[in-house]
Amino acid sequence: MSDKSEGALLGAIHHVALIVSDYDRSRAFYHELLGLPIIAETLRAERQSWKLDLALPGGGQLELFSFPAPPPRPSSPEACGLRHLAFRVGALEPVIEHLEQHGVAVEPVRVDALTGRRFTFFADPDGLPLELYETPAC
């Protein structure tokens, strides 16, 4: 490999994997509330674990895993590791309204100082920060 910029080695993100504390609650949140279609759902009995593959628009996937008594992950203050997952939306208001109608707290809308785009945060059932990032052309 040369030092010349011949393109990235990596393509788009294939999947993001989350370990959840309550499989049924997280399945309902991501599939029913957020509307992500199920690709596959597998019981891995030898590991006492479920694996749920959900489709993301654009071809990526979100994988949910359950394990008996997973340890909590620190998220605040800014812990090292995954900071948040961001989902592109065409308009914030309809998504915010949908979430709030289902009892999900959404932070006030902010504007990205670097891009001028609007965004907001909410949390999944385990407190993982999720971002809605407005890109009107999506």
Rank of each mutant, 00 (worst) to 15 (best):
V16C: 13
R83L: 11
L18C: 03
P70T: 07
R83V: 10
S76C: 02
H31I: 00
P68N: 11
P74S: 10
A40Q: 15
E78C: 06
P70L: 09
L54S: 07
F67Y: 15
A69N: 15
H15K: 05
A86R: 04
P37W: 06
P72C: 05
I38P: 02
L33H: 06
A79Q: 11
I38S: 04
V16H: 09
Y30W: 12
L36K: 03
G81T: 08
P74W: 01
L33G: 03
A79P: 02
P70I: 08
R83F: 14
L62N: 08
H84I: 02
C80L: 15
L43M: 14
S21N: 09
A8P: 03
G81N: 09
H84P: 04
H15E: 04
Q61C: 08
S66M: 04
R27W: 07
R25F: 00
G11A: 12
E32A: 12
E46C: 03
L52K: 01
P77D: 03
L43S: 11
L9K: 11
L56N: 08
R88S: 10
H31Y: 00
E32L: 07
R83W: 12
P37G: 07
F29I: 02
D53P: 00
L34Y: 07
S26H: 06
E78R: 15
G7D: 08
A86F: 03
A12S: 13
S76N: 08
L36S: 02
G7T: 08
F29L: 02
F65D: 00
E46Y: 14
S75I: 14
L64V: 04
L18Y: 05
S21I: 00
R83P: 00
R44I: 15
G11Y: 07
H84E: 10
E63H: 15
I13A: 13
R83E: 11
F65C: 01
S49A: 15
R44P: 00
I38G: 03
D53N: 14
L9Y: 14
V16R: 05
T42H: 11
P77L: 02
F67G: 01
E41G: 08
R27C: 03
H14Y: 10
H14P: 00
I39S: 09
L82I: 14
D22W: 02
P68Q: 11
E78T: 10
F67K: 11
E63M: 11
G81R: 11
R88Q: 13
R25N: 04
L18R: 07
A12I: 05
P70F: 09
P77M: 01
L52R: 01
A45L: 12
F29D: 02
V89S: 05
G35C: 07
P72H: 06
A86D: 04
I38F: 06
E6R: 12
H15L: 04
L62E: 10
P74K: 12
G59D: 10
F29K: 02
G7N: 10
L52Q: 04
H14A: 09
I13S: 09
I19L: 07
Q61F: 09
F67Q: 13
G60E: 08
A28R: 12
D53G: 06
V89I: 06
E46F: 12
S26P: 01
E32V: 07
P74F: 03
H31E: 13
V20G: 00
P70Y: 09
P77T: 01
L54Q: 08
R44N: 14
D24H: 09
C80R: 15
G81P: 08
D24G: 04
L54W: 08
I13Y: 05
V16W: 01
E78N: 12
P57G: 15
L62G: 07
H84F: 09
A45S: 15
R25D: 03
